[in-house]
Structure formats: structure tokens, C-alpha cells
């Protein structure tokens, strides 16, 4: 993981508002979304680095980034 990898939000955490479960390259992970300016919802795409969501992404941006990662490695 060099500069972040796209992940899709699967579910929100009831106990901790900054934690959400995402699908990160096919693996479910808990990440922190406390650095984002807007709340996220299941189905949203985020760019994840070191356990934090750094920005939200459109589905097209995520697809483009995933294509680059597939070609060059994450």
C-alpha cells in the first residue's frame, strides 16, 4: 500500500461513530473515517491509507484507481 487503496463502505459502527467496516481489496477491515469532512454511508467509496479514510471517491474514481493498482500493485 503506497498511497492509499480504494475501499467500499460495508457498514457503520454503532459503538464508535468514526469506525466503519469496509471491503478493502476483498478483505473486511475496520477503518477510521474521522478525518473526512462528510459522513459516509454503506456503498460509498473511500481512499484508505494506514487505517484512515483520507477522502471519498466516486465509483468511477475508485474503478480507475483499482485499475492502476491492478496493473502496478497497490
Amino acid at each position: 500500500m503506497c498511497l492509499g487503496i480504494p475501499a467500499r463502505v460495508r457498514s457503520l459502527s454503532a459503538g464508535h461513530p468514526d469506525l466503519v467496516e469496509v471491503d478493502l481489496a476483498g478483505v473486511p477491515r475496520l477503518i477510521n473515517v474521522g478525518l473526512l469532512d462528510e459522513p459516509v454511508a454503506p456503498g460509498d467509496w473511500v481512499l484508505v491509507h494506514m487505517g484512515f479514510a483520507l477522502s471519498t471517491m466516486t465509483e468511477q474514481e475508485a474503478a480507475d484507481a483499482l485499475r492502476v493498482f491492478t496493473e502496478a500493485g497497490p
Partner: peptide, 25 residues
């Protein structure tokens, strides 16, 4: 030099978390 976290130090709301990640990484 490569990771994006140094850039987040300039945002007061994000600086603490960025500093922690930089230090631990």
C-alpha cells in the same frame, strides 16, 4: 516524502492523527 500524511499536518483538525501515523509508520 511519499506518503500523504505530511500534507495533513497543516490542517489543525487532522494534524494530531497525521503526526501519530508518521511517528508510528
Amino acid at each position: 516524502g511519499v506518503y500523504p500524511w505530511v500534507g495533513l499536518l497543516g490542517d489543525d483538525r487532522k494534524a494530531d492523527k497525521a503526526l501519530t501515523v508518521l511517528d508510528r509508520c
